[in-house]
Design a protein around this nucleic acid. Structure first.
Lengths: 236, 236
DNA sequence: ACAAAAACGAGAGCACTGCTCTTGCTTTGG
DNA sequence: CCAAAGCAAGAGCAGTGCTCTCGTTTTTGT
């Protein structure tokens, strides 16, 4: 169905992509606030009004960029996991670390796109299912690492008890995702997920200026601690 | 020196405050992106050009709002700590919890102002010392709670070793702040600080939609875990 | 006390923005 | 082959941040 349905359809796809590419360029240079439809149209040599045939509004363009960014980040994370070789590829702690560093590396390489998805929600809130789906990829990857560890019997379930409502949320999530993990682990995974991005946001948004200098070391250390909190064994 | 230096000076202060108040109003309604100088001037019944006598640019107004927001948050946090009564007021874990909940309560009550300070940096980066000073208040409060616990001998120093560069950062921070805490504790405090806002940002920016429903319980649980990670005893 | 200097408010104006509407042209499909 | 749909371009509207100028008012130095 994506076959050649005429030159027009193909052209539409290409132009849509060109618009997004140029918008991404301006985003990387000036940030989301300064992204201007007219400037994009100008750079592409088209009338600004023509652009509205492809994106009905500026917010729609931004939403498309957001989804792309989520997917790019998800892909970076997954590929960091996939490029592990040798015995490292099987050790849960190493997988966890690789995943987190993959996320961080992408964020450092694309700070404005990171800000777009994990900074303040720019277009008056919203979360179409396409967005949330793409947004979930990193979280799912984290769960995957822990699930594999659990299946291999390499998980040390935390002893601390959890309040009932938290357990309920964790169970609901586990059921929805069809993943078999103890509620305590799942709940801590959610926390670790949020905290991972807390660390990244502080680093990227300048909150660590004059506080943390050895950013990579600090990140690794913090992320190792998160791995422990979900029950992963972290040798050495 | 802040004495009455003429009606003009007093009027200037009042008008400056009125502008910020109206800007804050529009901020709370529409978010930072939609805040317009002209609209503020209109609401105040003055010409838009007159507003530039008080704030040289839109970014300067935003910066002022950012500083105010940091201070309001810092104040909310400190007062949550100060309003503890009875034996709770002495238990480090209770103080830690009260502090974190104070931060969360303020954030939930002022989501747009929270987004202004912990979302994407809106005006092309920047951090005048006045900003960083106000921004540090919550972090300092967290440190204070742990310092007191340490002084009272109620701190269980974590055993896990830290990489040297991280230790160095922690020592430098401790020296700069003149606070006597083990490097391992200080390093974990920085992590806990970042993670606290990671949790809040995820909650406020909608990342927990359809994932975590029992937000307050979840927050409490996560923040308790953070307290443990810095060495605080958490009874029950 | 008076004149010079500084601060102020208002208005007009510039360059820019997102977005709409209308007018012609081109591709598509029955 | 021709009507219908898709498309690009231009003009135009309302709004924005910001600058400049021009009278007026307040402060300040002598």
């Amino acid at each position: 169905m994506t076959a050649i349905r005429g030159a027009r359809e193909r052209a539409r796809g290409e132009i849509t992509e060109a618009i997004k590419a140029e918008a991404r360029r301006q985003l990387a240079e000036e940030g989301a606030a300064k992204l201007s439809l007219r400037a994009v149209a100008r750079a592409l040599g088209m009338a600004s009004s023509a652009l509205y045939r492809y994106f009905p509004s500026r917010d729609d363009l931004l939403t498309a960029l957001i989804i792309d960014a989520y997917n790019a980040l998800g892909e970076a994370a997954e590929s960091a996991l996939g490029s592990l070789r040798g015995p490292e590829a099987k050790r849960p702690a190493a997988r966890w670390l690789a995943l987190c560093h993959g996320v961080r590396d992408w964020a450092l390489a694309h700070p404005h796109e990171y800000a777009l998805i994990y900074g303040s929600p720019v277009p008056g809130y919203r979360a179409p299912s396409t967005t949330t789906e793409a947004a979930a990829r990193v979280g799912l990857a984290l769960i995957g690492v822990v699930r594999d560890a659990h299946a291999a019997g390499a998980l040390k379930e935390p002893a601390e008890p959890l309040p009932d409502p938290v357990v309920a949320d964790a169970l609901a999530l586990g059921a929805e995702l069809g993943v078999e993990l103890p509620a305590a682990v799942l709940a801590r995974l959610i926390g670790a997920w949020a905290q991972l991005f807390g660390l990244l946001s502080f680093e990227l948004f300048g909150q660590f200026n004059r506080v943390v200098e050895a950013r990579a070391d600090f990140f690794e250390q913090a992320v190792l601690e998160l791995a422990r909190s979900v029950g992963l064994h972290t040798p050495r």
